[in-house]
Nucleic acid binder design. Structure first.
Lengths: 257, 257
DNA sequence: CGTAACTAAAACGTCATACTTATTTGCCGC
DNA sequence: GCGGCAAATAAGTATGACGTTTTAGTTACG
């Protein structure tokens, strides 16, 4: 059997350096099924295959030049994300977006990289503004001293990097700050949203405001949230975080049509 | 593995029969991989395999009496849920709970069925109390007349079935009510939590209060939420839903240690 | 005695193929 | 025209062979 070019030197689809998404370590570069998945997944979530269209396994076997096993495993994973449903004698049918497991980090990533990005960004920001204030309130009651310290550290880091084109470093602190809040809430479901927040913040930084320094008001709010948590003031932590969320929503109107 | 003795004449190296016994998956699983998944998934989420323990494919091949194809597909799905990670030469290692995709409906279901149920129930209820009020507020502004009607219908259905051991029918309306709220919020991330809410409500009904009729106060609150949404009163819808959530949290203290 | 390089084995990863089963299409007889 | 039977189809399962990576063990050399 002919071995095709084995992905020689020169990565296809350059990940464009550090920028992309370093959030999820599990990016599947290694392994054939991962490659096929990273081709099919984005295509489906981008709407290249409208809901109801059928994919036949032997067709993609030849399309991606891989064996049946690989295709089947990919199909299983897509099926587990509810992106497709496989039925005998009919094929693998693409499911409508309402069925998708939109909390799957990969689905989120794929959609953020596709044409549905603005809508997705809006959904995620609304989700954040529902979750994060509650998480901050819980964090104020549950955060360990170490977590309080982390929080303060990152808030100060944000202050320090908020001026003079240091957006990349600012972003690191911003992400870390929200991650600590979510983790300190003591709720595993909240904690798991850390990746989502990271995606949103990263996307926001890398797509638009690349040249405008962060809003000073937002920076101040973060510092005050850290204070409130440190002082165990749940009410204030929640209210302040709600203000941050409101700001994020407002910012969204500017950058996402 | 039991081989089928009878095989075609003159076959070189008798192909072992596969069609043997199609063990009927007791629940939800049509197909072998589903059966194995429904055995492994709950076992892992229950903690039967502590984080770090290794599962070898050929071992479970014989343990479940299925072929490699099936095992591999199951592994791929478990891997996509971040329940396990597969590494060459070492095997399939179970990941720690912090890594799990806790938003995957199946993971939620498995954990709700396992020993971690109280903790899980608490996490999900906290999540609900963060999301649903916001969703109700949005629904009050966005719900279509049809959705308002549905809401009212199910609220009334809850009233009608709230007395006299009709918990099963009550549950249907309860689930439908919350589903409509989440869907009417216009946020796909919220809408997708309908399944989660359904699991929580179902679990709650089927595990504990099977013999006590629903709290009349809660029923009334649902009716009033439907009213508020119909009247486009976002503030009130949100506040009332927050009361429902508070009630759910309080109930939790009774049934989950 | 310790470190580096080589070798061997273990496990997953991939391929190719044979065969099974469920589902649909459609033909045929009533 | 209707209902049931038969052929076609595509996914599901099984299996043997081979490739690849990683770990561990062993040897050679300083």
């Amino acid at each position: 059997m002919d071995k095709r070019a084995q992905e020689g030197p020169g990565e296809p689809e350059g990940q464009s350096g550090q920028g992309g998404q370093t959030v999820q370590g599990v990016q599947g570069g290694s392994g054939l099924h991962a490659r096929v998945l990273e081709a099919l997944g984005p295509a489906i979530t981008a709407g290249d295959y409208p809901p109801g269209s059928v994919l036949r396994t032997d067709e993609m076997e030849e399309r991606f030049e891989v064996s049946r096993s690989v295709v089947r495993e990919v199909i299983r994973v897509l099926e587990s994300m509810h992106l497709v449903a496989s039925r005998r004698r009919v094929g693998v049918t693409v499911l409508p977006p309402e069925e998708w497991n939109v909390y799957d980090p990969r689905v989120i990533r794929w959609r953020l990289a596709g044409p549905d990005r603005p809508r997705q960004l809006r959904s995620l920001t609304v989700l954040r503004s529902a979750i994060e204030p509650v998480a901050a309130g819980l964090a104020a009651r549950l955060a360990t001293p170490a977590q309080c310290a982390e929080l303060t550290e990152h808030a100060l880091g944000m202050v320090a990097t908020s001026r003079g084109q240091q957006l990349e470093r600012y972003l690191v602190h911003d992400i870390a700050f929200h991650r600590v809040i979510l983790r300190a809430s003591g709720n595993e479901m909240f904690a798991r949203l850390g990746d989502v927040v990271a995606e949103v913040l990263t996307g926001r930084t890398h797509h638009q405001v690349m040249f405008t320094d962060p809003d000073p008001a937002a920076v101040t709010l973060h510092v005050r949230v850290a204070e409130a948590v440190r002082e165990r003031d749940a009410e204030r932590a929640e209210a302040l975080t709600r203000e941050i969320a409101t700001g994020a929503m407002a910012e969204l109107d500017v950058l996402a049509p």
